[in-house]
Design a binder for these strands. Structure first.
Lengths: 170, 170
DNA sequence: GACTGATAGGTAAGAGCTGACATGTCAAGC
DNA sequence: GCTTGACATGTCAGCTCTTACCTATCAGTC
């Protein structure tokens, strides 16, 4: 099980959850639900689907209007998906620009630090607003939604706590 | 301000916070503190320091034993660092394998889902243990530590909630 | 003297990802 | 008939990052 097959898994998961779809559909789905969990644009998705078809994980079910190609997950794809979900130990790699700014906060004076934390808080709040608008009951993604909400709320709480601390010492 | 200069910022931040250091030192610092916020191995750090020196952001202060090269941040480097901290709007790009597994949980049966969430929880707990052992008072990183602790704890809370829900329905 | 492990610094192939560009279809409104 | 905008699919350069590999020094131990 190679690392860095998360894009494949995400695509297989969508195909498994919502049924056959075109690359375009999958890109839209990424934008409107999965993007809180994994990012990918159409420039990544289209070539990946071609490779996945070559590997037998998906098939082109039929071609529709405007060159629209509908992909469906194969039994091999379903097997890979389930194996990954059950067996893959998620890597702990984190790359958060927000956390990096938090890390480096002590390099700024109090006034500057307050401004930075205010902006970080605004970011968390905006994200919270987006997550609150995600429709529930779409089967896939509900658990990720509650996880995201919890983590974003804890981000807001951190920002408030940090702002209070900075203002006390400032 | 280009995107994807976070590695530079992280290195400049360390040099600014702890003073001149070698690539090796910086790699160690990454491993023991920054890696909860941003990942980078020595294979990324060494070439990046060379490029940063070429761009005038750092200088080789002197060379020590065993070819050890000590880098120091320059005024230009300090200016770039401060500008980024104050002016950079952190990108919201997320790529979390854990969250992806959470997203796809509904594709599994209850028994399998419980096993996956148990593993995710174990991951969060392990991370919590690591963060609890990070020495406080090291100036840099304290704010990121409290942020990380909050988010990991909310991860554990989510896992407990989700396990309870799965066991009710199972 | 030989071996081990930490120190110290790299290179290079290839995978992953971003942003810019390119092409063409189809429906709706003017 | 023409334009606009959504639909639909792709390529490519360039950057980031990971993995595997390589070299060499020095201290301590068997």
């Amino acid at each position: 099980m190679l690392a860095g097959m998360s894009l494949r898994i995400a695509l297989l998961g969508l195909l498994s959850g919502v049924g056959p779809a075109s690359g375009y559909d999958l890109a839209k789905k990424f934008e409107h639900s999965l993007n809180h969990v994994w990012q990918a644009g159409h420039t990544q998705i289209y070539p990946e689907l071609v490779k996945m078809a070559a590997d037998g994980l998906v098939t082109v079910e039929h071609e529709g209007a405007r060159g629209r190609k509908i992909y469906a997950i194969t039994p091999e794809g379903r097997a890979l998906l389930t194996d990954w979900l059950i067996g893959h130990d998620p890597s702990a790699t984190v790359r958060s620009e927000t956390a990096l700014q938090a890390f480096l906060l002590p390099l700024l004076n109090t006034e500057q630090a307050i401004a930075v934390v205010e902006r970080i808080k605004a970011h968390f709040v905006a994200r919270l607003a987006v997550l609150d608008c995600v429709p529930e009951g779409s089967r896939l993604g509900n658990y990720a939604l509650t996880l995201g909400l919890r983590q974003v709320r804890s981000g807001v709480a951190w920002a408030d706590e940090t702002l209070a601390a900075l203002r006390r010492e400032g």
